Computed example of a mutant assay.
Amino acid sequence: MKPMIVAVATLMISVASHSATSQMGGMRGNSMMEEGHMMGGAGMGDISRLRHRYFMRHGIDTTYADKSNPLDPNPPVLETGERLYTNNCASCHGESGLGDGLAADSLNPKPANITAFSRMPMASDAYLYWTIAEGGAPVNSAMPAFQQNLEEEEIWSLITYLRAGL
């Protein structure tokens, strides 16, 4: 499927879910995670969709909105990104970024398939930076926030590595 069609389809699912929620007498969960469960079905409550819905409703914090990756995908940057991914992300997102790491089964919502997501049009530099920096706090997931543990250049190295295809 073409990326634009996927983005439109995802938005339509989000709108349909919101409509269905409104038609159920305004019943809404207290968190994005609960809303994800209301969507039902295996995989429908995954973190990518929850984060997308949050983004569509609230946008990105202005702290991150204008961020743009200053790094080129050269060997030192990619090596740093790979090391950071292995040490901080692989246990949940998996070696290949498919959301199937050793810890993934114990998490709800499940970790995102960042291999696919990092190449989608919605996954701008600002969006990916925001996701890594803030972690799961905005969407009530277990993803830790890395803004206190990683330097800005390390986050950009990680994003560069993700975009290069793990």
Rank of each mutant, 00 (worst) to 15 (best):
L158A: 06
N69H: 12
S106F: 08
F55N: 05
S68Q: 15
A103V: 04
M39F: 15
Y161F: 14
P109F: 00
G136T: 10
G29R: 06
L50I: 08
P138Y: 03
A103E: 10
Y127G: 01
A123Y: 02
S68W: 13
D125I: 05
M1C: 04
R163W: 07
K110M: 00
H18Y: 07
H18F: 07
P138T: 02
C92N: 10
L158C: 03
S91N: 14
A42G: 13
G43W: 07
Y127K: 00
G29H: 06
I13K: 01
Q148L: 10
M12P: 01
M27Y: 13
S106E: 03
G99W: 01
T131C: 06
E151P: 03
T86P: 13
G59N: 04
K67A: 10
P144Y: 05
I47R: 13
G165W: 05
E95R: 10
N74S: 15
A133I: 05
E79N: 14
W156Q: 08
K67I: 08
R51Q: 12
A16R: 05
L98S: 08
S17K: 00
M39R: 15
M4F: 11
G97C: 00
I47M: 13
D125Y: 03
M120D: 04
T131M: 10
T62W: 00
M38K: 14
V139K: 01
L78E: 05
A142R: 08
S141L: 10
Y64P: 02
A145M: 03
F117G: 00
C92Y: 05
G59P: 01
A90M: 11
V6M: 07
I159Y: 02
D61Q: 00
Y64M: 04
L78N: 10
N88Y: 10
V8A: 07
M120K: 08
S68D: 12
P75A: 09
R119D: 04
Y54W: 14
G26R: 04
L78I: 04
C92E: 04
S141I: 11
I159F: 03
I159D: 00
Y85V: 07
N140V: 14
F117W: 06
G135A: 06
G40F: 14
L98A: 13
H58A: 03
L84T: 12
S22P: 01
W130L: 04
S31M: 09
A20M: 04
A20D: 04
V6D: 07
P76L: 13
L150W: 06
R83W: 12
T115V: 08
A16Q: 00
N108A: 01
H58K: 13
C92G: 05
T86W: 14
I13H: 01
S68V: 13
A142G: 09
H58Y: 11
P121N: 02
R28W: 09
L158P: 02
E152G: 11
S157K: 14
S157C: 15
M24R: 12
G25E: 05
M24I: 10
E35C: 15
S48C: 13
C89W: 06
P70M: 11
P73V: 12
V6K: 10
R163H: 04
S31V: 11
D66V: 11
I159R: 02
Y127Q: 00
R53E: 09
